[in-house]
Simulated scan of single mutants.
Amino acid sequence: MPRLPKLAVLATAALLPLTLASCSSAPDQEGAADSSGDWTPVEVEHALGTTTIESEPERVATVNWANHEVPLALGVVPVGMAAANFGDDNNDGVLPWVEEKLQELDAETPVLFDETDGIDFEAVADTRPDVILAAYSGLIQEDYDTLSEIAPVVAYPETAWGTSWRDTIELNSAALGMADEGAELIAGLEDEITEAVAEHPQIEGASAMFLTHVDTTDLSEVSFYTTHDTRALFFDDIGLQTPQSVADASAETDQFSLTHSAERADAFDDVDVIVTYGGEELVTALEGDPLLSQMPAVRNSAVVSLPGDSPLGTAANPTPLSISWVLDDYLSLLAEAADGAQ
Rank of each mutant, 00 (worst) to 15 (best):
F235C: 10
E263P: 13
R231I: 12
H260R: 13
V273F: 11
T217D: 15
D269K: 09
A206Y: 02
D236T: 14
T276M: 07
V271C: 09
L240D: 07
L240P: 06
V214C: 01
D236L: 10
H213E: 09
V275L: 15
D272R: 03
T226V: 03
D270Q: 06
Q255D: 15
E252W: 05
D269P: 04
H228F: 10
A267M: 15
T212P: 00
R231E: 12
D237L: 07
V271W: 06
E252N: 14
F234M: 09
E221Q: 12
F268R: 01
T259Q: 06
F268C: 07
F268A: 05
D218P: 09
G239E: 10
F235E: 10
T253E: 04
T227Y: 03
S223E: 12
A249P: 03
T227P: 04
S261Y: 05
G205Q: 02
T217F: 09
D248K: 03
S257T: 14
F268N: 03
L258N: 03
S207R: 03
F235W: 09
F256L: 13
V222C: 01
T216F: 01
D269E: 15
S261D: 14
H213C: 02
S257L: 12
A249K: 06
L258G: 03
H213Q: 08
Y225S: 11
H228P: 08
F268K: 01
T226H: 04
S257C: 11
E263N: 13
D254M: 13
V214P: 04
T259Y: 05
T230I: 14
S207D: 04
E204R: 11
A208W: 00
A247S: 14
H213I: 09
D218E: 08
F234A: 11
D237T: 05
T226M: 07
Q255K: 04
T253P: 02
V246N: 05
M209W: 00
D254F: 12
E252A: 15
S261N: 12
